[in-house]
Design a protein around this nucleic acid. Sequence first.
DNA 1: ATGTCACATCTAATGTGA
Length: 282
Amino acid sequence: MRRFLTTHRRGSSANAHRRACYKATVRIATWNVNSIRAREARARAWLDRVRPDVLCLQELKVEESGLPRAMFEDLGYQLVALGQKSYNGVAIASRTELTDVVRGFGDGGDDDQARFIVATTGGVRVACLYVPNGQEVGNAKYAYKLEWLARLRRWLDDHARRDVPLALCADWNVALTDLDVHDPAAWQGKNLFSAPERAAMHELAAWGLTDCYRARYPDGRDYSWWDHMAMSFFKDRGLRIDMILASAPLAARLTDCTIDREERKGRDASDHAPVVATFTAG
DNA sequence: ATGTCACATCTAATGTGA
C-alpha cells in the first residue's frame, strides 16, 4: 500500500510537471487567406477557435505597414512577415518566439515578389511559401513558377538540414496526384496539374519531405482550394494544393493532418481552407 | 466563354491576377 502511494505520488507529480512545462503536441497550420485585410475578422475568429501553435499565411496582399498586427498580438501570437502591395505577401504567426527570420531566398536572385519567409519557432524551422500560380501552361508566368520551384529545391540543398525538424507550409499551386483533383481527366495537362510542375514538386520532395496529409490519409479525397466561381465549393470541385511538407525528424512526430473545410463556407470566405498538421512535442 | 473575388486606379468602371 505504502509502495503504491509512493509510486502514485511520484507519477502524479511527474505528470503535473509535464503539464506545467511541456505541451503534448505542436500544431502547425497553413492558410492562403486571399487578403489579410479582407479576411481579418475570419482570421481572428479562426485563430481564437483553433489556436494552432503556428500559422503560416499566404496572399496577404498588403505591405507590412498595413498588417493587422494588433489582431495577432491580442490573441498571443508573434508575427513576422514579408509584405507587398496588392499581390503575394507571406507571414508566420506563432505563440512561441520566432527567431532566425529570413525574408526571401537571399541567393542573389530576384526577390521582388514576396513569396518566401522562414523562421525558427518551438524547435521547428518553419518556411511559409506562396508558390507562383503559373496562370497557364507555356506562358511566362508558368516558366517563372517552374524556375521558382527549382530555386526552392536549391535553397533546400544550400540552407536546410535533413536532420532538423523542418516544415514547408505553402499554397503550392500544384496538385500532386489524381486523388488531389476532383476531375483528373479534365485537369490533365492544365496549369496546377501539368506534368512539368508535378515533376518539379517530385524533385522537391525527393530532398526528403513528407506530405503530411497524404501520409495520414493515403486514399483521402479532401481538397484545400475551390474556385470562387461556378459554385465550385458547393459541388466540391476542388484541388488539394495547400500542403505541409515535413522533413524526416518532423514527419516521424506526425499524428494527424486535417483540412478545415468549414472555413471555406460562407460568402466572406477565402478560396482556400486552412490545413492543420499535428505533431508530438519534440 | 462563363462565373467570383480582391485590389488598384484619373472615385467609377475597368484592368489584372487568381
